[in-house]
């Protein structure tokens, strides 16, 4: 009696907190936790044509995936894609942000230009890129032709397809990264620059010693987000290449989609989703462990 009473009393803070958290707990449960557990559950089954769990196969789906050359290929493509898009995208965005952070006349115009790709949806911009990549009437091949270079099968040559998709992805993502980084730059205290100027520091010295350290929380955020985004790329693949040619752009999320909604194999699709989840989890944890040490919070 006494102990329960005191426990009830002691947990009053916790209970109040829970009450405040309740709306988000409910929302998360319905839209995140339930689907997640359901995915894990389905990954241990073969599903029938209606997508219901039919036969429990234990870890067979995982075994099949890890041994399948298609899945390995899709992992490889995903990792390459992340390596192509994330570093270049962020460096480019940082470069633009530094340029646009200068106080010049009419800089607002450039700021709008650089961030404008954010306003175009993935689907719309993919269609535009699709036209530019077109082997017969596309802009890029026309350009190459006028310069006298050999034509490139942008989306049809397995050697090029992933690079082409990466190119368009970098273009699509640079607007968002730019905007976040510019915000970070503008938050840096002007006094730091003033005093360093008095001390006679040059531009690159200031960049290295003041800008980058002060920007590191923003950079850390944008790297994390970009990495996760790159792992989850879907729209541009669906529109530009549909995973082809020769599976060279069959990134893992696209492969999940195809397995589930074209082939109706929800079991193997779920197993792939679980593997992707684990990979992103590990990468993010690693990032926090390794990267955060270098981040300077004010």
């Amino acid at each position: 009696m006494n102990t329960t009473g005191s426990l009830w009393k002691r947990s009053v803070n916790g209970r109040t907190a829970l009450l405040y958290l309740l709306p988000s707990i409910i929302l998360f449960s319905v839209f995140v936790f339930y689907p997640m557990f359901r995915t894990i559950y389905l990954s241990f089954f073969l599903t029938d044509q209606a997508g219901n769990a039919a036969i429990n196969v234990g870890f067979e789906n995982y075994q099949y995936l890890l041994g399948s050359s298609e899945f390995q290929n899709s992992m490889k493509a995903t990792i390459l894609f992340v390596l192509y898009t994330v570093p270049i995208g962020i460096i480019l965005a940082l470069f633009f942000a530094l340029l646009a952070n200068e106080k010049l006349k009419g800089i607002g115009f450039f700021r709008t230009m650089y961030s404008s790709t954010m306003g175009v949806s993935v689907a719309a911009s993919s269609v535009i890129w699709l036209f530019m990549f077109n082997p017969s009437i596309g802009m890029f091949n026309r350009l190459l032709q006028t310069v006298g270079l050999p034509q490139i099968q942008w989306l049809l040559d397995p050697e090029w397809a992933l690079l082409s998709v990466s190119m368009s992805t970098i273009w699509m993502n640079v607007g968002f990264s730019f905007l976040i980084l510019l915000g970070g730059l503008q938050n840096i205290d002007e006094h730091l620059y003033e005093s360093s100027r008095i001390d006679g520091a040059g531009y690159f010295y200031r960049l290295r010693r003041i800008t980058l350290p002060m920007l590191s929380p923003t950079l850390f955020f944008i790297i994390t987000i970009s990495l996760i985004n790159a792992f989850q790329t879907f729209g541009q693949i669906d529109i530009l290449t549909k995973g082809g040619p020769s599976q060279s752009t069959n990134l893992i999320v696209y492969s999940i989609y195809r397995e589930a909604f074209v082939n109706y194999q929800f079991g193997t699709a779920s197993a792939q989703a679980v593997i992707l989840f684990v990979i992103i989890l590990i990468v993010t944890i690693l990032q926090f462990k390794l990267g955060e040490r270098k981040v300077h919070y004010q």
Binding site: R10, N13, G14, R15, L22, S29, Y34
Partner: peptide, 19 residues
């Protein structure tokens, strides 16, 4: 310490109930 095991347990029960 303030949060203790109790609310966490609650949370779990709630999640289960919704599931």
């Amino acid at each position: 310490k303030k949060f203790g095991a109790n609310p966490l347990l609650w949370l779990l029960i709630l999640a289960m109930a919704i599931l």
